[in-house]
Design a protein around this nucleic acid. Structure first.
Lengths: 217, 217
DNA sequence: AGAAAATCTTGACAACTGTCAAATGCTGGA
DNA sequence: TCCAGCATTTGACAGTTGTCAAGATTTTCT
């Protein structure tokens, strides 16, 4: 009897898994559409009907795949995380010298600033929402941690290449670079290209300060 | 005939001015109520009726004193500005030594963090709104400028007292401290008192880095 | 092919939104 | 005292929102 039920179960399992996969695939598809709508309109003005219009489905389907709006937005945030949290890893891996790492990092910094500006402003929007709505807090904390770790990989590797030691801890270093990024994003979205360019120099100076030359320890 | 009309006019002017004053007084009164409601609920979930309930009037009166919702929110933001943009001036004025200034600044930093947390999260909320809604951009830019200047008064005075020169420009220095403040605010509102306490040390280190001892120039 | 199940659309609901106009209460001047 | 004009309330409007259920459609399995 064991054998038969086992065969049957695995068969059902295969079916179930395939269904689950399809279900999950559509879920993330809709989450991606949500992400783009949120990035365009911001959290405050994004409605389910608007999201559905940015997909190829009608608004009712959202409640087939998601429990409620929060569930949907949460899943969308997770999509953001997947995209935006490993951005500098190849830069770190590919740089042989400190100067090269610094240059590549700054380039990537401003490249994603310009290319993904709507996505980034959404991230800041949701991080702020978590200051009011504690439902978002856990997800935000998790992503914030990964972002901090991502920056720290850059900084500590940069210090290593420069034969130095970072002048600030992981949290403060992230606060500094994220602060510069936020400001640059604001300037970019306001059409102040000149101010953005000026911030490039500021970023270089900040990196030099964080990992001053010759501060071997 | 000139004299008579002049007398009449000044009389009417007095009346008119008194009315204007009363009008303005109520306007700011309602703007303050708006500010508190916004600080409690965030921009996305603040409705006119909710604002009115936090005042002693009914919701209709808001359209008597304000053209529309944006007008109201804008006026509320200006109230925030009046409160929050001169906070460190007495600290700067009253400190005789660098060590004293640093200590007082850090104390004030965390005092307002805890006392006015809802107000601060509102500021960040509105600054983010301006990334999506360009109507807010000018007001945000103005306040952001004043905040940066406020921080710069602290930093440059601190450097002066330490006989040193700031290691970063005004913009980057603000980005660093504001980044730390944002993070501390998040921790405070999440009930992570321990993390907030840890950030006090980070802030001190950041100040020391910005105005390193002996960096006379 | 036909039944069963999964998927998607449509339309409706109650609640809530910003806005405004009509009605009411109120105050200050003649 | 009475009245004009200011201040405030009330109630309504058109539109939007999240949610959900009933039905239509498509896919899947036997």
């Amino acid at each position: 009897m064991g054998a038969v039920t086992e065969v049957v179960e695995t068969k059902q399992d295969r079916i179930a898994r395939r269904q689950v996969d399809k279900f999950q695939a559509r879920r993330t598809e809709l989450a991606v559409a949500t992400l783009h709508t949120l990035a365009e309109l911001g959290y405050a003005r994004t409605s389910l009907r608007e999201i559905a219009q940015n997909s190829e489905f009608s608004h009712g389907v959202l409640h087939y795949y998601f429990a409620d709006k929060r569930d949907l937005v949460t899943e969308a945030v997770r999509q953001y995380e997947a995209v935006c949290v490993t951005r500098y890893d190849e830069v770190v891996a590919g740089a042989g010298t400190g100067a090269r790492l610094r240059e590549d990092f700054v380039d990537m910094f401003f490249a994603t600033l310009n290319a993904d500006a709507p996505l980034h402003r959404l991230w800041y929007d949701l991080r702020n929402q978590s200051l009011f709505d504690e439902t978002f807090r856990e997800d935000v904390r998790e992503i914030e941690e990964r972002r901090e770790a991502m920056i720290w990989r850059v900084i500590s590797r940069y210090a290593e290449l420069c034969d130095a030691v970072p002048a600030l801890g992981s949290g403060s270093a992230y606060a500094l670079l994220d602060g510069i990024f936020q400001r640059a994003l604001w300037c970019a979205l306001s059409g102040r290209a000149g101010d953005v360019a000026a911030l490039r120099g500021e970023l270089v100076r900040a990196l030099d300060l964080l990992v001053g030359e010759g501060q071997t320890q």
